[in-house]
């Protein structure tokens, strides 16, 4: 101790913090992928005003958008042990909550969170596709599903791409909240390392640089995909 800023310590702990990357990426990717599926169904329920499901989707989106992510994470994290206790009690099973890794709860929490936001953005993208496209597809005899899958959704996806990219980058950074549920992602690892030497500032600088680096890589990938997309049409 005694140093104001321990540069050597900051470098030393980088490999340990990097170990959090797989968790960070896993949570972001699973949350995003499942979120797109939820969002797609949510968007279709809303656009076609499917009875009951339309209202439920509205309630779900409103709740998720109206509560902080960290609260949602803690709710899922504490709701599950209670749910499993209830199942054990009701069905006489002996499921042990410790069998389920904490990261699984995070998959659920981030998927539900992403699903709500993506419901709204996918809905907007589908509505942004020219209405004539659906009519043209129907006029040649395609069913509504064929028209959706082959004509409307590919165009909606293209419209969505910049929104999706921004959302994914945001999601990747939001995974830093998963440490509140004891998941050893980048932020969790940084906290562990920081705690060993009580050098928090150094560890968080590492964390910041790692997130920044990941986001720069992502932005490059997105720029590449967008460029290729422009060329194809």
């Amino acid at each position: 101790m005694g140093k104001i800023f321990d540069f050597q310590f900051m470098i030393e702990i980088i490999p340990s913090i990097l170990k959090g990357i797989p968790f960070t990426i896993m949570i972001a990717v699973v949350g995003f992928a499942v979120g797109i599926v939820i969002g797609l169904f949510g968007a279709l329920f809303k656009i076609y005003k499917v009875p009951v499901l339309n209202k439920l989707t509205g309630l779900y989106v409103s709740f998720v958008r109206g509560t902080p992510l960290v609260v949602q994470i803690l709710l899922i994290y504490y709701a599950f042990p209670i749910l499993i206790k209830l199942i054990n009690f009701k069905f006489g099973t002996k499921i042990d909550i410790s069998w389920i890794p904490a990261v699984v709860f995070m998959f659920i929490a981030y998927s539900l969170n992403a699903g709500a936001y993506l419901t709204e953005s996918i809905r907007a993208s589908i509505l942004a596709v020219d209405k004539g496209q659906m009519e043209a597809a129907e006029s040649v005899g395609m069913t509504m599903w064929q028209a959706m899958i082959r004509i409307v959704l590919p165009q909606a996806a293209k419209i969505s791409l910049p929104v999706f990219a921004n959302f994914f980058i945001g999601l990747l950074k939001d995974t830093s909240l998963a440490f509140t549920a004891a998941v050893p992602e980048i932020m969790g690892q940084a906290k562990i390392q920081a705690g060993r030497a009580s050098r928090f500032f150094e560890a968080y600088i590492d964390a910041a640089l790692i997130y920044w680096g990941l986001c720069i890589i992502l932005e490059r990938i997105v720029a590449f995909i967008e460029k290729r997309n422009k060329e194809s049409a």
């Binding site: 020219d130 004539g132 496209q133 006029s139 040649v140 005899g141 069913t143 590919p154 049409a233």
Partner: peptide, 22 residues
């Protein structure tokens, strides 16, 4: 009925109605 009717007809639209992604 809609599918049957549409499979017997074809339409040319004022605004072309070409599939933009094809």
């Amino acid at each position: 009925v809609k599918l049957e009717a549409r499979r017997r007809t074809a339409m040319v639209f004022q605004n072309f109605g070409l599939f933009a992604n094809k």
